[in-house]
């Protein structure tokens, strides 16, 4: 991988390379007869921070879940890190281990300690020796500022701490891309900040991120691109500045007035 980077849209010291991380072309998905994702074209460059927003049911979750094959698409192609996502399980495994994902409800494993949650996949998927996996896990737990909780169980932690563990758990797999599906929407207001801070830190380190969120402050601060989806289509995408201050499509304007207006 070439490290020298042509800055496409530098923001706040964060850089974006011209190396493609995710390439989605002509992607379509149906649930039975229901056409959820329609003709999605999206190119994500290495180091980009993309925020996806849109009304409920517009297909945001479905889109990012297609990227790590939690959902399968029926037409078009998705290429992640130069690996074409097909129904071949080999590639699915490869892509899933390169792409980290955080969910709205954390999806930690409640029967394992925080540390075990973080070492499970490195040990079983990456085949890393246990000792080394523990070291890596402690490193990332320190990074999300909860190393002292390592031997507790998820049920003993607050929502914000659990979400940070979930982020650390993904990071332990050393992913090249992180997907977030409304990581803060199940949290109490006072915990949202600690999770967003973690994500901002991650962005500053140059992680490629796609984040479904309604935290517009976060979008303004770290995103270099905001994507607006409605009815299974990408309706508008732009830099945050342009997106928030000068939305072009009527639906975007309507959506923004609803979430920012009240």
């Amino acid at each position: 991988m070439s490290v020298e980077q042509t800055n496409v849209t530098p923001r706040g010291g964060m850089t974006v390379s011209d190396e493609v991380a995710i390439q989605i072309t002509g992607m379509n998905k149906w649930y039975g007869q229901f056409h959820v994702l329609r003709d999605i074209d999206l190119t994500v460059y290495q180091g980009e921070r993309i925020v996806v927003c849109g009304p409920s049911g517009s297909g945001k979750s479905t889109l990012i879940r297609c990227i790590n094959a939690l959902e399968e698409h029926q037409a078009g192609s998705i290429t992640v890190d130069n690996t074409l996502l097909s129904s071949d399980l080999k590639n699915i495994d490869k892509i899933r281990s390169e792409v980290g994902m955080c969910f709205q409800h954390f999806n930690l494993f409640p029967h394992l300690t925080i540390l075990e949650n973080c070492t499970l996949a490195p040990i079983w998927v990456r085949k890393i020796p246990k000792k080394e996996a523990i070291e890596t896990a402690m490193h990332y737990l320190e990074k999300v500022k909860i190393p002292d909780q390592a031997n507790k169980y998820p049920g003993q932690l607050s929502g914000g701490q659990q979400q940070r563990v979930a982020i650390a758990r993904s990071l332990c797999m050393k992913p090249r891309i992180m997907l977030f599906d409304e990581p803060t929407s199940a949290l109490d207001p006072e915990m949202i900040k600690e999770v967003l801070d973690t994500m901002i830190q991650l962005a500053e380190e140059g992680m490629t991120m796609i984040c479904v969120t309604h935290e517009m402050g976060f979008a303004r601060q770290v995103a270099n691109r905001v994507i607006f989806m409605a009815d299974g289509q990408i309706v508008e995408q732009n830099e945050p500045e342009g997106f928030f201050n000068n939305p072009q499509s009527e639906r975007t304007q309507q959506f923004l007035s609803q979430i920012l207006g009240h």
Binding site: L70, R96, S97, G100, M101, H105, F109, A121, S170
Partner: peptide, 16 residues
Amino acid sequence: KGQYEGGMSLGLSFWQ
């Protein structure tokens, strides 16, 4: 369902 998805997203195989 989230428990399966948590496992899948980390690249664990079905049997794992």
